[in-house]
């Protein structure tokens, strides 16, 4: 194994004439080093102005998503040796405006998230005094997979629809809606469907499936979207057959 690897890193400083450029850095190639360790090496020893987000470095906080060799990845869980002998290209996630270097603007997602009402909705006045809602392990298993989303944005970076139609509410938000819909404690399916049945909702998706391919937590947003389309189709049929009050 060579003792170093070349990283090609996007640099960008906002300004009237600024366009992203690529800078090259040679970093040590070590068995245990993630792509993120390479970036940290650059920041600590070569160029302290390089900007990127990271925090937990154990694949759970969702901060460090970037495009590595064109694929959306968590850089703390993607290893340099897998790209040896290099070079390895590191770019900001696609489909988002670049703020600075490898940092992208995810405010669009943060604004969309509350629209799917990702919280427990009830139609009664049960309080904690009444104890826990019973939920069997089988009922938990129904939605568990969709609750593992870490909002890392890799699925938005991979989604060709989101790239073309920024109004599309997107894979992670739909997966989260499905997570609450499938939760035996929740009664909010109706309210969420009203949001997702709109054209920016599930119908935007043409089922490319890239979201599920890149998800580092095996959440399967594409599966959630498919399930929602069935619900929405059924709902459209009901609209056709019945007046609203009877639904």
């Amino acid at each position: 194994m060579a003792d170093s690897i070349r990283m090609q890193v996007t640099r960008y400083t906002p300004g009237p004439d600024s366009v992203p450029t690529v800078a090259e850095y040679d970093v040590p190639l070590r068995k245990d080093w993630a792509v993120l360790d390479g970036l940290n090496y650059i920041k600590d020893h070569v160029d302290s102005s390089l900007s990127y987000r990271w925090s937990c470095r154990m694949g759970i906080c969702g901060s460090c998503g970037m495009n590595v060799e064109g694929e959306p990845k968590l850089t703390c869980a993607t290893f340099l040796t897998d790209y040896a002998p290099g070079p390895v290209r590191v770019e900001p996630l696609s489909n988002f405006p670049i703020v600075r270097d490898l940092v992208v603007d995810i405010e669009d997602f943060m604004e969309k998230l509350p629209r799917v009402k990702p919280w427990i909705i009830r139609d009664d006045d049960v309080t904690v005094i009444d104890g826990e809602y019973l939920q069997t392990p089988e009922e938990l298993a129904e939605y568990k997979q969709f609750s593992n989303c870490i909002n890392c944005m890799l699925c938005y970076a991979a989604c060709p629809i989101y790239g073309l139609e920024p109004d599309f509410i997107g894979p992670a938000a739909i997966a989260l809606a499905e997570r609450y819909d499938l939760d035996s404690r929740d009664r909010g399916q109706r309210e969420r469907l009203d949001v997702l049945i709109e054209k920016e909702g599930v119908w935007g998706c043409t089922f490319v499936g890239e979201c599920t391919t890149v998800c580092p937590k095996h959440v399967d947003p594409a599966g959630a979207i498919q399930r929602y389309k069935l619900k929405a189709a059924k709902e459209n049929l009901m609209t056709f057959l019945l007046p609203r009050a009877a639904r």
Binding site: W119, I120, V126, T127, V128, G131, E132, Y133, L134, Q135, T136, P137, E139, L140, Y143, K144, S147, Y180, D183, R185, D186
Partner: peptide, 18 residues
């Protein structure tokens, strides 16, 4: 328990209790 009511997916006993 409050977190349970707010949707936290606590692991469960077979009968559905925490």
């Amino acid at each position: 328990l409050q977190l349970e009511h707010w949707g936290c997916p606590w692991s469960r006993e077979p009968d559905g209790r925490i």
